[in-house]
Amino acid sequence: MDIYKLIEWVVKIGIVFLIFMHALAYIVLLERRLLGFIQMRLGPNRVGPFGLLQPLADGIKFFFKEEIIPRDADRTLYIIAPVVALVPALTTIAVIPFGDTVNLFGRQIELSITRVDISMLVILALTSMGVYGIVLAGWSSNNKYSLMGGLRSSAQMISYELSLSLAIVGVVIFSGSLDLVQIAKEQMGTWGGIIPKWNIFTQPIGFTLFLISVIAETNRVPFDLPEAETELVAGFHTEYSSMKFAIFFIAEYANMVTASAMATLLFLGGWHGPYVEKFPLLGPVYFTMKILFFLVLYIWLRGTLPRFRYDQLMKFGWKFMIPVALANVVLVAALALFLY
């Protein structure tokens, strides 16, 4: 282990963390502005040019809000819950590759914090830990609405995790690897110089399943039942205020970014795009653009769709998503056998 390797790690972690946290703040702004646009109003535009300083103002506001802990709450769990939600959400970024190896300062640098050969499984393991934050928050607040939110969240997570994993299995069969770098590299190049070799074209069913399940996993509209404000008064975070509430907020947006990054790597060719072989530094740019596409899609859905009812959600998950996902796995496996 040489000292340069250590410096490289520290620098990479620092840069990624800074960019990630700032990006999260600005995604919130993007969401509010876009929603405003969709709903024919302006959205926050007062703080700074085009409201660009709004995240800063929000942050300051969160810091100075009064912190309330309900009297009958389970204090220990109540305080731990936001941390449990945030840590897995931020850790996943460590195994996500956002570009190929580049040559910088005379060193070969991999554009990911660390490379694991089962990174797909690591991400699945970490995201499945995220649900405990919500569950703990719902339980410890000692509030009926929060408890309902936690219950719904755990049921929803178990149900949609199955179709999510089954949708990923299709991609894994095609690329023969659990390594996200390898999966992205398999999608290099084009067919006939026009259509890029992305998995979305070979497995449209898998992509649709993945997208629906991932929206359900991140608790976003139309699957935001754990925090449905009209029926559960914001669900699991009803009792949370100040920075604890902000942490849940950050965790939710971090999960959205991770989900978008996964969708990009698995189905949209990761960092691949025109001229990326010649200039590897273009990779992260393309990667960010594709992630941004998914984020806008998330916000667009929020502006467009109504919420599912709970029984509809469960029926849809178990009676439609999982059978279709299983059929898709069989189809993909048969195709893979036939083609290779």
Partner: peptide, 11 residues
Amino acid sequence: MIVYAGAIMVL
């Protein structure tokens, strides 16, 4: 982590 901690314990 996926099966025990992420699925069975959630149950």
